[in-house]
Amino acid sequence: MNILVCLKQILDPEVPARDFSLARSHLQADPTCADLVTNIFCENALETALQLRDRHGGRISILSLGPASVEDTLRKGLAMQADAAFMILNDTGHLPDSAATAKALAAAIGKLDRLDLILTGHESGDWGAGQTGGLLAEELGLPFIAFVDEIEETGPDRLILRQQNDSGWQKFSAPMPVVASITNSDHNLPRIPKIRDIILANRKPITSWSLGDLELSPDLFLPEHLLVRVTELTIPQAKGDCAFIEGATKEEKIGKLAEKIAAIARSI
């Protein structure tokens, strides 16, 4: 089975509030205010693919779109034992551009051997639009399932995908090729790579394409061409008007707290 996992590099969502700052444009975060990391759901996706390969064999390619720094994300993916890595170089910044991203990814996928399964993270930790997987499926004309947390191969051309939904989960049987966006579960926490694999990953080749190499317009990511455009970005200030419960004794305070809670509970 040929699997492709799309990996997005993002600004660390765990950046402490004090370090977080906006770029001069005020339309995105300052990319130097925190470390760049691989989006966690993308890592969950890669882990899901790795487990599938551990059980059924196959080949895993990883693909990332972004500035030269995405090499780090791809190296980490290779260290986790992906077989081949591809990158689409695009320096136009970290904007929420799911539709353009899906177009670029689809163009790159056109250059690869036939794939059986294409995975994305279900959303990213920076913009979190959560659109790329579905849009990519449409670009490729393939079936799509979101919120997948487990995948099993059942035959030469079908997969079973488990989807987390509102009240539990459902299992679907889907023909290959299929696109799925992966969410997190207890079973797809990304593995820690072995040191030898980290060292070897640094020596593996990475195929790099420009937008032009993929016959895409260099204007693809220009804000005025995007379907979704950020017009304002602000850092919200917490209100900080918490009423601390006072009291002479602990019992008194707990009593007051209970009354406040009970008042809300009764109003429902």
């Binding site: 600004l11 969502p13 765990e14 950046v15 509030a17 977080f20 906006l22 975060a29 929420p96 539709a99 930790g125 920076d126 913009w127 979190g128 005025e224 995007l226 379907l227 979704v228 455009r229 950020v230 017009t231 304002e232 970005l233 602000t234 850092i235 919200p236």
Partner: peptide, 17 residues
């Protein structure tokens, strides 16, 4: 409007399609 960057910022987003 939506919360972005792990809740550290609030974005206003225009849908141009």
């Amino acid at each position: 409007t939506r919360s972005v960057y792990g809740g550290k910022a609030m974005a206003k987003v225009k849908l141009q399609g």
